[in-house]
Design a protein around this nucleic acid. Structure first.
Lengths: 204, 204, 204, 204
DNA sequence: AATTAATCGAGACGGTACGTCTGGTCTTAGA
DNA sequence: TCTAAGACCAGACGTACCGTCTCGATTAATT
């Protein structure tokens, strides 16, 4: 997901080491441009100019524009929130979804997430990277749900994949289409509705 | 959403009338390019060349690349399926979602839908157009759900907006992120899960 | 040189007659655009829009943009000054050259003359028309010079063509290249210099 | 007049240096297109395609189409003929004018000169550049004439500017208007006529 | 201290596409 | 049959980015 060089990279040494200043300038310029100029105002050319960095330097470290944006995201959402585990599925999901929806509302983080999804449609190389990101998130949610099943809070026949889609789906839908806001209330409603269902005879 | 001229347009005539040949050639070229070259291979330049049409003609009738793609979609999904109304919410929703998911699977129609969502992120003008498209679809679904409530099939306290998001959300999520396919089974699972809920003691 | 229809055109009648309003509007628009926007601002499109006339109407009556400009010129210099014939070559030439140079200075007429020369370089059809215009002017000047030879004012071995070029050449040169103005003084200097020569032992 | 970089340019380097290959390819393509397709067939688009060069590269180095054509001219007339100085004004002028007229006859060089004059009428930016070109040429001729005055070959009251116009004027006139060819004979006639005058009692 | 090698900024390169403008043709309704 | 309006195909305009490619200069670690 990131352009970081592994600490134990095989061929180290010799030559000028990577400049952290340049790295940070690029990431910050990316975030700044996404914020002020939006996704259409995001081009490598402009990032390079804004960061005061050569284009070559960007291409050297980030294979795709998506990779760049993805790293900007991890910088923004730096504290990778741990799995909550409050003992109640509903509470766990409330916390996670609220946290997620707030990220979507965050002006920078939201723009970055949108950009990644858009970039994934266009760039097959990034699409692959992006799928690992998506899979990561799904895995965390699946674990929480599985715990709910194990504890008997959720039906044993619950289809995990479908349930995960029922939670992330509305998030991405509202993130990309502004027909309604990503409010805290909505986050909880999505969870509650999934747990209770909307059919009257759902629990006979 | 479409470039059609309203039947009782106030400004009638004067000047050469719009050429239907050119119109159709443009739409067909758009579909052809989307099919053969994919969305990245879709440029006004290429559409014009393929259709044997001046670029001016395209810009005259479609303000955005998105608007063009949107009309191509309505052409592909030409039979605007009427509201099913089988007497059962569940059946109605099954039919609608299956139909929708199949459109997403359709190689051209799926690409067009994806393109529209992407274009809406980039072009604010199209974003507005796209919202009317989104709103239309939501309205249809809302009507079906409301009927369910009226018939007592759905809880009277059902939040319509949340329910609609719970149905369209997973669709767009899987359409844009290929972590799992838009199968018929998935379409039904989404509906059933929404109706029944996944919590065991959901109705205390 | 003009797009006028001969008054006794053979096949008259039938159909809507030519609109003089349209004709005049086109010519006036041409002059107006040349004045306010200069030669680069002169396009059939803009003339049609300014005149409130269909492009077709222009193309119907004037085969080339040059023909249009040429007719605008004859409208501006409507009083085709007659050959002066004062009895003295020098006086005749002074009068003619001063008149010509003033036309070049006239903001509209100068622009039109420049436009014609430019158009003649680009449009072979107009180049032919333009040559008859050039030939006309040369003929008038030749006649005056020939009279001078006949009267013994000019050398019998004077090469008429060369002399005509020596008079018109500097005019066009300064008309097209603004290195110095087309002043009355210059008009007379050109004539006097041609008559006297600049070599000291020219008349031994 | 040229795109050359001054030898002792103050801003030395930084960034990839200008490609001479690209430069030459552009100039050669310009000449080729002028030759084969004429001035109307000369577009930046086509030059770029013919030269195998990006349009940006052309716009980077030549502000105007005229500037490009101007440099093509200096390449064609590469040996900037030195001031002849034979000891006789007449002989000097004969040499210079013959040389100039032959350039006008040269199929490419003539087209280029014509193109420059046309471009100067249309593009004010190039008009300025072109005036320095014109001024350069005038200066050379002035020097020759001044030498003639100093040596007593020409009248002390000779108006240099008028004399220069009397030499260049007929050249440009015949270059732009094909009423008569730019022959060697004509070149000499223009000079001789200027020196001797055509009036019999011109020196009373 | 000198050498070596990878970095940095700057920016030119060949390209593709953008959205606008014009040229010249064509097609209507109305005079 | 002409006119005004304006759509049509074609293609050039000048700009913005793309991803690649040189440069000279900088900065360690290795000689």
């Amino acid at each position: 997901m990131s352009g970081e060089i592994a600490p134990e990279s095989p061929k180290r040494t010799q030559g000028r080491p990577r400049s952290d200043e340049a790295h940070d300038a690029v990431i910050n310029a990316t975030i700044a441009l996404l914020t002020h100029a939006g996704y259409p105002g995001l081009s490598i050319e402009r990032i390079a100019a804004t960061a005061g960095v050569g284009k070559r330097t960007i291409y050297r470290w980030w294979p795709t524009k998506g990779a760049l944006v993805a790293e900007a995201y991890t910088q923004l959402i730096s504290d990778r929130h741990p799995d909550p585990d409050t003992g109640s599925v509903q509470r766990d999901l409330h916390v996670m979804m609220r946290r997620l929806f707030r990220a979507g509302l965050h002006p920078q983080a939201g723009a970055v997430l949108r950009s990644m999804m858009v970039e994934a449609q266009r760039d097959p190389r990034f699409a692959t990277e992006f799928q690992t990101f998506i899979a990561d998130r799904r895995r965390v949610l699946s674990k929480v749900l599985q715990r709910g099943i194990d504890r008997g809070e959720l039906g044993a026949d619950t289809k995990l994949d479908v349930a995960v889609d029922a939670l992330f789906g509305p998030f991405w839908y509202r993130l990309l289409s502004p027909h309604a806001p990503l409010s805290d209330t909505f986050a909880q409603d999505v969870v509650d509705q999934l747990l209770s269902g909307i059919g009257v005879s759902s629990t006979p």
